[in-house]
Amino acid sequence: MHKDTGGITSNLLGGLSNCLRRCIFGILSMGPMPHHIAFIMDGNRRFAKKSNLAEGIGHKAGFPSLISMLRYCYELGVKYVTVYAFSIDNFKRKPNEVQSLMELM
């Protein structure tokens, strides 16, 4: 009889990830923490094209990563975060692409 070990493996990896995260946060919190961090969201569209993914998938993949980074900044006590995610030149893109980017934010 075959046992489903996917859940066990997932739980083990999740626990290991949390332990590693706590360890890294502990090390980072020992030094001076920056007051301000800026993120420039760039390359999501190139990533999708290079990976032969549908238009917009790169942006949808990048958004959860940004949310994770913002959560980490909060947990580490970073007071100010700037996110540069859309330039005025991006309005030159197809209207449906601009709309989907706006909906992500």
Score class of each variant (00 low, 15 high):
residue 93 R to D: 01
residue 83 V to T: 07
residue 35 H to N: 12
residue 86 F to C: 00
residue 51 S to M: 12
residue 21 R to H: 12
residue 19 C to M: 09
residue 9 T to C: 08
residue 94 K to E: 09
residue 29 S to A: 14
residue 88 I to E: 12
residue 58 G to K: 02
residue 8 I to N: 04
residue 3 K to E: 07
residue 8 I to E: 12
residue 32 P to E: 14
residue 63 F to D: 06
residue 85 A to E: 05
residue 30 M to G: 07
residue 2 H to F: 13
residue 78 V to M: 04
residue 5 T to K: 06
residue 45 R to I: 01
residue 70 L to W: 03
residue 75 E to Y: 12
residue 88 I to G: 00
residue 105 M to Y: 13
residue 20 L to E: 09
residue 51 S to W: 01
residue 87 S to V: 06
residue 11 N to I: 10
residue 89 D to M: 00
residue 57 I to F: 10
residue 93 R to I: 00
residue 65 S to Y: 04
residue 44 N to C: 02
residue 98 V to T: 02
residue 67 I to D: 07
residue 2 H to C: 10
residue 93 R to N: 00
residue 94 K to F: 06
residue 5 T to C: 06
residue 76 L to Y: 05
residue 103 E to F: 00
residue 66 L to I: 09
residue 12 L to N: 11
residue 39 F to Q: 02
residue 84 Y to L: 14
residue 36 H to C: 14
residue 47 F to S: 06
residue 35 H to C: 11
residue 81 V to F: 05
residue 99 Q to D: 07
residue 66 L to C: 00
residue 74 Y to L: 06
residue 27 I to Q: 06
residue 28 L to I: 15
residue 56 G to Y: 05
residue 99 Q to N: 11
residue 33 M to L: 14
residue 11 N to A: 15
residue 32 P to A: 12
residue 44 N to A: 04
residue 35 H to Q: 13
residue 40 I to V: 15
residue 19 C to Q: 10
residue 94 K to G: 04
residue 61 A to S: 11
residue 45 R to A: 09
residue 98 V to I: 02
residue 16 L to I: 07
residue 72 Y to A: 12
residue 26 G to W: 05
residue 40 I to Y: 01
residue 36 H to L: 13
residue 59 H to G: 05
residue 24 I to L: 11
residue 52 N to Y: 07
residue 50 K to N: 13
residue 9 T to P: 01
residue 82 T to F: 02
residue 39 F to R: 03
residue 1 M to N: 14
residue 8 I to D: 09
residue 19 C to K: 12
residue 43 G to F: 06
residue 69 M to A: 14
residue 5 T to L: 15
residue 37 I to F: 10
residue 16 L to F: 11
residue 72 Y to D: 12
residue 49 K to Y: 04
residue 103 E to G: 00
residue 101 L to D: 01
residue 62 G to Q: 03
residue 87 S to T: 15
residue 54 A to K: 10
residue 81 V to M: 03
residue 81 V to C: 08
residue 59 H to W: 03
residue 94 K to C: 03
residue 74 Y to T: 13
residue 21 R to A: 10
residue 87 S to H: 03
residue 53 L to D: 01
residue 16 L to G: 15
residue 69 M to I: 04
